[in-house]
Design a protein around this nucleic acid. Structure first.
Lengths: 243, 243
DNA sequence: TAGTGGTCTAGACCACCCT
DNA sequence: GGGTGGTCTAGACCACTAC
């Protein structure tokens, strides 16, 4: 009885099949069981199986060939966490085979800059909490991230925030806010002076700069993110399934 | 009778609803008709409507609120083409509100470098066609792209290739190959000397460098892409729907 | 020809939000 | 309570590929 009924069946099927692919129970490059077989084995409808397979196909994790079968993508079966589908830098690091670690560098209060106020559609005099963190991949510093959180959003004292939580978890726990969508702009930048030592990178090699704005489902901007990404340590990779 | 039967119904519904959103028939930030209403109006099942809405939600184009309704994302309703879902630079440029143009700079033959041979899993002595193109947004040069196409793949003389076609179209027409998925690695780089004039950018401002590998559904690498992206002209933006 | 994935339907029931 | 989106089912038929 691999399926417990009370929880969303689709999520359970996702977890089961993803695990089988990761653990190489379904070998990379090889055909996996047909939709009908999976439906029968798991005791769910073929529609449900197809919902899950469609999700995996969109991620590029599997390839479906009409009249033939469904194949495991041999190139991303093990490290399937790419930037496009990521909600948390620690997951990204772990998904690429590294051991993640987080160090909180600073937690300070200040007022907004004009640009920030515009992006948050907020009063420029509002005070915010600025949280800077460093994400390590196998003890190498890979990402420097700063989040700007308006004080009006915080439901708990700033000092109580745990710096090792993913940012959407912080939003849920300390702001009672659910993220609807995130807009990320990616740019290139020379290494900022204050990050040279922290990211341990060379001066002549530019970094990737990622500007994020988090919105809830009511279209309100919640918080900002500004990250510097050392692609020499960790690839910024997108996998794009076709058709 | 808005629906013609012979073509895939889902695709027709996608086209109809996307057009309504773009044309502001459904206003940004406002609620659109319910799933049942759309199903009835278009004469299709609610399941079909839901398939389409799920796709739009994954793109961030709409937001669905249980017990309430489906809302048009007011921030990306007009310019919904972001980098994550793009298969063609011209579409990306047009989707961001610019007029696209393409100029073919060079079309030459050479042998592979070692790195390229490795990425294509090919004999290092193989000859390839190197096609360099410049993509303009409103007459400003925005992207410099070079594609490496193995000669063994070409079913037609290199001289017959039309340089204004999207790369997947070139693959289909001249190589009889269907793209299964694409892996893109994004890096930052100082402006290469030979691109300073072509991209009309300043020396001290780095560029984004995008390395792409195109695979078919049989896991074979087909062609390579190396693009330099001037983010000062065109944002490299990802929209990431949550949950 | 048999089996696969692709498409589409009709309908049941649930969880949730609003008034 | 009434309407919305969320979940899930059973089954029909089609298009395609391998054998």
């Amino acid at each position: 009885m691999p399926i417990e009924r009370p929880k969303p069946i689709v999520d359970q099927v996702i977890a089961i099949l993803r695990e089988r692919i990761h653990s190489r129970a379904y070998l990379p490059g090889r055909r996996m069981p047909s939709e009908s077989e999976l439906a029968q084995e798991l005791g769910v409808s073929r529609t449900t199986v197809r919902t899950v397979l469609a999700k995996f196909a969109a991620e590029g994790l599997i390839l479906r060939k009409q009249g033939d079968g469904t194949y495991v993508n041999e190139r991303i079966a093990e490290f399937d966490t790419h930037f496009g589908g990521v909600r948390d830098f620690s997951d990204l690091i772990a998904g690429n085979g590294y051991t993640p670690a987080i160090k909180t560098l600073a937690l300070s209060q200040r007022t907004l800059t004009n640009t920030e106020a515009q992006e948050l559609e907020s009063d420029p005099n509002a005070t915010v909490l600025a949280m800077s963190r460093l994400f390590y991949a196998n003890e190498q510093p890979a990402i420097h991230a700063t989040n700007i959180i308006p004080h009006t959003l915080l439901k708990a004292p700033a000092g109580t925030i745990q710096g090792n939580l993913p940012i959407h978890q912080i939003l849920k726990t300390y702001c009672h806010q659910q993220v609807g969508y995130v807009v990320s702009d990616i740019e290139a930048t020379p290494v900022p002076a204050h990050l040279q030592t922290q990211l341990a990178c060379q001066t002549n090699q530019p970094l990737l700069k990622i500007k994020e704005t988090f919105y809830n489902k009511d279209h309100q901007p919640l918080i900002l993110g500004l990250s510097y990404y050392n692609f020499a340590i960790l690839k910024l990779r997108l996998v794009h399934a076709w058709e």
